Simulated scan of single mutants.
Amino acid sequence: MSTRSFSRGAAAPTLKDLARLAGVSPITASRALHRPELVAESTRLRVQSAAEQSGYVPNSLAGGLTSRQTRLVAAIVPTIGHSLFSDMVGALITALAEARYETTLGISSYDVEHEETWLAAMLSRRPDGVVLTGTEHTMRTRRLLLSADIPVVELWDYIPHPMDAAVGFSQEEAGRAAFHHLRACGYKRPAILRADDSRAQRRAQGFLRAAAELQAPEPVQVVFPEQRPQLGRGREALTALRAKCDHADAVFCSSDALAQGVLAHAHALGLNVPQQLGVMGFGDQALAVDCVPALSTVRIDGANIGRLGAQDLIARMRGGQPEPARDVGFAVIARASTALKS
């Protein structure tokens, strides 16, 4: 098999490029992709390997376009079950529509392998731009995007050197700020209750690092699968924490929804919040202020992230070069659920 490297700025690999890389004719390469039963298994595997190596994506719109522009944007989010992501997506789609771009939306369910499969299918439709949530992707996803050579914006997570452009905030710093808030409120042994997704994990790492920096006891963690139904999560998490560490005096939850469940179960157990247990969420969702007591949390402006992401993507699709990375920050919102202990 011959070799060829692909990088951003080079033309997307064609069927002829793929055939040359696999050491077969273009018609054989096409058959291996579209009618694999007509070629030997060894040939199919060679062509498949070449496609993965080069980032080649079959063009399902071949012959149907009179220009390269499709005015289509492909965007994927982990879920729309959280208002943070739905606010972000709503603002993104609205801003793109105002610029006459249509958006096709995918749901990854926090699975980078599914994101990869979705992306390959979307690139075959030749979108003008791609929006991803987060900065963690498979190597093949990165190769596909480099080979496609179209604008890409990663939302939600901030990193100084993104794949192309990024708009978001530091998950680690949000976790550090949460720990400092709980310590300032007088809590000595705050714990972490979180889902097992990578963003919640990075917030936990920031929380743990802040504890180490202050030479505080290492916070206990209770981790559960993100796919677990929302119903009963707070009860199960608090029950697991009390069995594991009955001296924890505060909890930092990976979402406001989880924190609300913890509050409800704390009330059922007769625990005084915030005196016996401080409760802090993440996201500042609509019901946070209506909890009893009102929920302390970390506020993220998802709608602003969506708007800025759309602006940067539109600028890139029109040939501009806005800043590659924007840190929109976050805010710690102190409410009664972590009121200063007397």
Rank of each mutant, 00 (worst) to 15 (best):
L208H: 06
E116Q: 13
L277H: 08
Q321I: 04
F224P: 07
E154C: 13
P324M: 01
Q275E: 11
D249K: 14
A174P: 00
A95I: 00
L144D: 02
R8N: 05
D301P: 01
T297E: 00
V153G: 01
I305A: 10
Q311C: 03
G270I: 10
D327W: 03
G234D: 02
N272W: 08
G234Y: 08
V77G: 05
L84P: 03
Q205S: 11
A294T: 14
A257D: 15
L263P: 06
A212E: 15
T3P: 05
G129A: 03
A12N: 15
T94F: 13
D197L: 09
G64M: 12
F85R: 12
L214K: 11
P219A: 05
A315N: 00
T239Q: 13
V273M: 12
V167G: 00
R228Q: 15
A12H: 15
A334Y: 08
T70W: 07
S170C: 01
S337Y: 10
A51I: 12
R176I: 00
M122C: 15
P26A: 06
L92P: 08
T297K: 01
M88F: 03
M280L: 07
M122H: 14
T138K: 04
S337F: 10
K188Q: 15
R143W: 03
G278I: 00
T66M: 13
A10W: 09
Q275H: 09
H82V: 14
E115S: 05
T3Q: 14
L241R: 02
L193D: 07
D196G: 09
L18W: 05
L155A: 05
P160C: 04
A336T: 12
R307G: 00
L61K: 01
G134W: 00
T133M: 11
A99K: 01
V77P: 09
G64R: 14
G106W: 07
Q215K: 11
G302L: 06
A331M: 09
A50R: 02
V57C: 12
R326T: 00
G261T: 07
C245W: 06
P229G: 04
L146Y: 00
H267Y: 14
R142T: 11
L132R: 10
F224H: 11
P322Q: 01
D312W: 02
R199A: 09
D197G: 07
E98Q: 13
L277E: 10
G283R: 01
G186P: 13
R20W: 07
L340K: 08
A259V: 04
T104P: 06
K16W: 09
A339G: 10
G206Y: 00
R299I: 02
I300M: 11
T94G: 14
S42G: 09
H82Q: 15
